[in-house]
Write a protein that binds this DNA or RNA. Structure first.
Length: 744
DNA sequence: GTCGTCCCGGGTTCC
DNA sequence: CCGGGACGAC
C-alpha cells in the first residue's frame, strides 16, 4: 500500500511530530494521504482515541471512518472523526456544564434561529427595512470571527437593531438551554480558557488533523490551535483554489499564513493529479486561472487527453433533465458504466426536481445526497419539536411550534398571554402553561385553560413513555399518534397527507437505526443531537445509484462521469447581491466552485444549460454561464460560441434580421420533438411577471430596428415566442417578439 | 378567539 | 412552489 504513494505523498504520510501543512490540488490524493497518515500514526503507537480528525461534512467523515476501519479494524471506531460541529458537541457533552450548558442542550438550526429573531423583532417593534435574515447573518458573521455581534459597528442603520436584538437572542438561547451552530464552537473556545478543561483539551489529542483547511473560519482555527497547543502535532490539508465557504466566514488566509503561525511547519505540495483526464484538467485550469486572488500552482497529470467535454443547450429545464437522463440511459445500456459511476451536480438544491422526474421516467436508480433537508420539512420539524419539548421542558421554541399543532384551539392570544407571564416570572412556556391550567395565570378564559391543560397532559404523558424506557422510535410513534398528527394527515386523504405520513415513518426508521446503533447508550438527547448535526442522506449510501447533489456537497468526492447542469448566468455563477461581500470577490468564489465542480470528474464531463428555467413556478429566460466562455475550445466536443442565444441587436438590414434570427434559433435548439414521452418545450402566452433583471420588464426603454425606440408596457410568454408590448414613439403600440428588440 | 383562505414575497450553498 | 401574514367567517 505504502509503495503506491509518490515521494511527496509518502513524505506527508510519514512526517513525524510537529506542524505539517499539505498544499494539495484537486485530485492529488489528499484524502488518501490523510487516511494513510492516521493509520501510520496508529502503527507508531498513537492510541486511536488520541487522534482527532476534522472534516467539513459528515459525508467526508463517514468516508474517512470507513477507509480507516478497512485499514485498522475496530481501532477506527474510537477515533475522533467528525465535523467541527459534531466534535464540539461531543466535547460539550463532557464539559458543557462549565460554560453554563445543562445536560441535553438543544442545537438550534437555521429555521429555529430565524423564528426566534423574527419574534424578538416583532416584540421590539422593529419594522423598518430589516429582515430577520439580515440580522441573523450579521450575528453569524460576527460570531464566526469570534466577536460580539452587538459590538460590531458597520456604520449603517442595521447596527442599532443588531445591538438591540442580539442580547435578547442570546438570552433566550440560554433560557432554553440551547446553542446555535456557532455557539457550539464558541463555547468550546471558552472552555479552552477554563482552568480545568483548558489544559486537558490542549493535551487530550496527540495528533490533530484538519481536512479542507481553507474552509476554516477564524473561530475554528483558534480552536484547532488550542487543541494542538500541547503537542504542536497539527496536520492541515487544503487547497486555496477550493475555498468555497467564504460566505460562512471561511478565511483562506488561515492556510496561506499557516507557516507564519507555525514557523517550524513542514510544507509539502502535492501537484500531480491522479484523478482526471488531461482534457478535464485543462478545462478546470482555464476556468480557475481567471481568478486574480490565488496562490497559483501547477497541477499536472500523466493521464492522456481523454474524451472531449460534451456540451448541450436545452430549451427548458425539463428538456435539460431529459437530455441528462437519456445520456445516462444510453451510457448504461451500452455497458461499461453503472449508475454509481455517475454524478449529477448542480448549484442549488431546487434544481434536483426536474432531474429526478426524468430519471424516474427512465427507471434509473438515483440518490439525492444531503438534499433539501429532510429535517426541514414541516411534519418532521413538528415531530422533532415534540421530542425536544419532552426532553427539555425549557424549550420555548419547541413549545411555540407544537402547542397548536395539529390545531387544538390554542391561538395567538392565549400564547401571548402565556408569554407575557413568562417575561414577568422567567418561567418557561410549558411551565407557565401548567400554571395556567391550574388557573394561576391571569387573563385566560376557562376554555383556554382547559385546552392548555390538555396539552400539558399530552406532553406529560409522552414524558412518562420515555420514563418507562421506551426507545426513541417507540416514543416517536407515540408522539405522532397521541398528538393527533397522524389523524390529521390521514383525514386530509390527499397526496400531500400521505407524503407527510411517509416522511414521518421514515423518521421513525431513522430513530430505529439510532436505537440499534446506540444500544444502551441511546437517549432522546442523543437522537436529537444527531438530527441537528446530520442529514439522513449522510448516513446510508444506496448501492448502485446515480448520485445527485450540490457542488458544495460534492467537494472531496470524485466520479467517473459528471453531469454539471444549469450552466446559466445568474444561477451559476449566482449573481445575487450579498451583504458585505464585493461583487468581484463573490464572483471569484463562484469560479472556485466551478473549478471544484469540473475537477470532480475522472473521465467524462457533460455541461448543460437551459434557455428557460422555471424558478418559483415562473419561467425565466436564461443566458449561458460566463464560465463557459473560459473553456478552451479544444476541450469541447461542441462549440460554446454559436450556442449563445440569438442577439436581439440589429443595427442594419432590418429585413434580413428576422430570418437570420429564426434560423439561428432552430439550428441550435437541440430538442427533437419526435418522441412521445419527451417533455415539450413549454410555452405560455400568459402575462408573466418578468424577473428583476429582465431587459424587457415594463417601463424599460427598448429599441427595434424598424420602429425605433419605445417603452415596454407588458411582457408575455417565454422562450422563442416571448412577445413584448411596446409603446413606440413613432408608430404607437405594437406587440413584437422579444428577439427583435434590444435594450435601448 | 380561533380557523380557513387568499395573497405576497422569497438569501443559494452547509453544519 | 411553499410558508407566513392579513383578513374575514364561525
Amino acid at each position: 500500500m505504502r509503495g503506491t504513494l509518490n515521494p511527496e505523498q509518502h513524505a506527508a504520510v510519514e512526517h513525524g511530530d510537529g506542524p505539517l501543512l499539505v498544499l494539495a490540488g484537486a485530485g492529488t490524493g489528499k484524502t488518501r494521504v490523510l487516511v494513510h497518515r492516521i493509520a501510520h500514526l496508529v502503527e507508531r503507537g498513537v492510541a486511536p482515541w488520541q487522534i482527532l480528525a476534522v472534516t467539513f461534512t459528515n459525508k467526508a467523515a463517514g468516508e474517512m471512518r470507513e477507509r480507516l476501519s478497512q485499514l485498522l479494524g475496530d481501532g477506527a471506531e474510537r477515533m475522533w472523526i467528525g465535523t467541527f460541529h459534531a466534535t464540539c458537541a461531543r466535547i460539550l457533552r463532557r464539559w458543557g456544564e462549565r460554560v453554563g450548558l445543562r445536560k441535553g442542550f438543544l442545537i438550534f438550526d437555521d429555521d429555529d434561529q430565524l423564528k426566534l429573531v423574527n419574534r424578538l423583532m416583532k416584540e421590539a417593534g422593529v419594522d423598518e427595512q430589516v429582515t430577520p435574515r439580515t440580522l441573523l447573518s450579521r450575528f453569524d458573521r460576527a460570531k464566526n470571527q469570534g466577536v460580539d455581534p452587538a459590538s460590531v459597528k458597520r456604520g449603517d442603520f442595521v447596527d442599532d437593531f443588531v445591538a438591540q436584538i442580539y442580547p435578547q437572542y442570546q438570552a433566550q438561547l440560554l433560557r432554553e438551554n440551547a446553542v446555535d451552530f456557532n455557539d457550539l464552537i464558541l463555547h468550546v473556545l471558552t472552555l479552552c480558557k477554563d482552568d480545568e478543561a483548558g489544559p486537558r483539551l490542549a493535551t487530550q489529542f496527540r495528533h490533530v488533523l484538519v481536512d479542507e483547511f481553507q474552509d476554516t473560519n477564524r473561530v475554528q482555527y483558534e480552536l484547532v490551535r488550542h487543541l494542538s497547543s500541547g503537542t504542536h502535532n497539527l496536520t492541515v490539508v487544503g487547497d486555496d483554489d477550493q475555498s468555497i465557504y467564504r460566505w460562512r466566514g471561511a478565511e483562506p488566509r488561515n492556510i496561506l499564513d499557516f507557516d507564519r503561525d507555525h514557523p517550524n511547519a513542514a510544507v509539502i505540495k502535492l501537484e500531480q493529479n491522479y484523478r482526471s483526464t488531461g482534457t478535464i484538467l485543462d478545462a478546470a485550469n482555464a476556468v480557475i486561472s481567471k481568478n486574480a486572488d490565488r496562490h497559483g500552482k501547477s497541477l499536472w497529470t500523466d493521464r492522456g487527453g481523454g474524451d472531449l467535454i460534451e456540451y448541450k443547450i436545452a430549451g427548458d429545464d425539463r428538456s435539460e433533465a431529459w437530455d441528462v437522463a437519456r445520456a445516462i440511459k444510453e451510457m448504461i445500456d451500452e455497458g461499461g458504466s453503472s449508475p454509481r459511476d455517475v454524478a449529477i451536480l448542480y448549484r442549488t438544491n431546487a434544481q434536483s426536481r426536474p432531474l429526478e422526474e426524468q430519471l424516474r421516467r427512465y427507471g434509473l436508480p438515483y440518490q439525492v445526497v444531503g438534499a433539501v433537508s429532510f429535517f426541514e420539512r414541516k411534519e418532521i420539524k413538528d415531530a422533532v419539536a415534540y421530542l425536544r419539548l419532552i426532553a427539555n421542558s425549557a424549550a420555548d421554541s419547541a413549545f411555540d411550534r407544537v402547542v397548536n399543532e395539529p390545531p387544538r384551539g390554542i391561538g395567538q392570544t392565549t400564547i401571548d398571554r402565556l408569554r407575557a407571564h413568562t417575561s414577568a416570572t422567567g418561567f418557561a412556556l410549558l411551565e407557565t402553561a401548567k400554571l395556567a391550567a391550574r388557573g394561576e395565570v391571569a387573563g385566560l378564559q376557562a376554555a383556554a385553560r382547559k385546552k392548555l391543560a390538555g396539552f400539558v397532559e399530552l406532553v406529560a404523558g409522552l414524558g412518562d413513555v420515555v420514563q418507562a424506557g421506551a426507545s426513541v422510535a417507540e416514543t416517536l410513534i407515540q408522539v405522532v399518534e397521541r398528538s393527533g398528527i397522524r389523524a390529521r394527515y390521514e383525514a386530509m386523504d390527499s397526496e400531500e397527507g400521505r407524503d407527510r405520513l411517509g416522511n414521518l415513518s421514515q423518521l421513525v426508521n431513522l430513530a430505529a437505526d439510532y436505537d440499534d446503533e446506540a444500544g444502551e447508550e441511546g437517549s432522546l438527547e442523543g437522537f436529537l443531537e444527531r438530527t441537528a448535526l446530520t442529514a439522513p442522506a449522510d448516513e446510508r449510501e444506496q448501492g448502485d445509484a446515480i448520485r445527485m447533489m450540490t457542488i458544495h456537497m460534492a467537494k472531496g468526492l470524485e466520479f467517473p462521469v459528471v453531469f454539471l447542469c444549469g450552466m446559466e448566468d445568474g444561477l451559476f455563477p449566482s449573481l445575487r447581491e450579498r451583504d458585505g461581500v464585493g461583487e468581484a470577490e463573490a464572483l471569484e468564489e463562484e469560479r472556485r466552485l466551478a473549478y471544484v465542480a469540473i475537477t470532480r470528474a475522472r473521465d467524462k464531463l457533460y455541461l448543460s444549460w437551459a434557455r428557460v428555467r422555471r424558478v418559483w413556478g415562473k419561467d425565466s429566460m436564461q443566458a449561458p454561464s460566463r464560465f463557459l466562455d473560459d473553456l478552451p475550445p479544444a476541450c469541447l466536443a461542441q462549440p460554446v460560441r454559436p450556442a449563445a442565444p440569438p442577439r436581439p441587436v440589429y443595427t442594419s438590414a432590418p429585413a434580413m434580421a428576422p430570418r437570420k434570427a429564426k434560423r439561428e434559433w432552430d439550428e441550435y435548439d437541440q430538442r427533437s420533438s419526435s418522441s412521445d414521452d419527451e417533455p415539450v418545450f413549454h410555452l405560455d402566452a400568459d402575462v408573466r411577471e418578468p424577473a428583476a433583471d429582465d431587459p424587457y420588464r415594463p417601463g424599460r426603454e427598448v429599441s427595434h430596428a424598424a420602429f425605433g425606440t419605445g417603452k415596454v408596457l407588458e411582457a408575455r410568454g417565454a422562450g422563442p415566442t416571448r412577445s413584448i408590448v411596446v409603446e413606440f414613439a413613432s408608430v404607437g403600440r405594437k406587440t413584437v417578439l422579444a428577439r427583435f428588440l434590444a435594450p435601448a
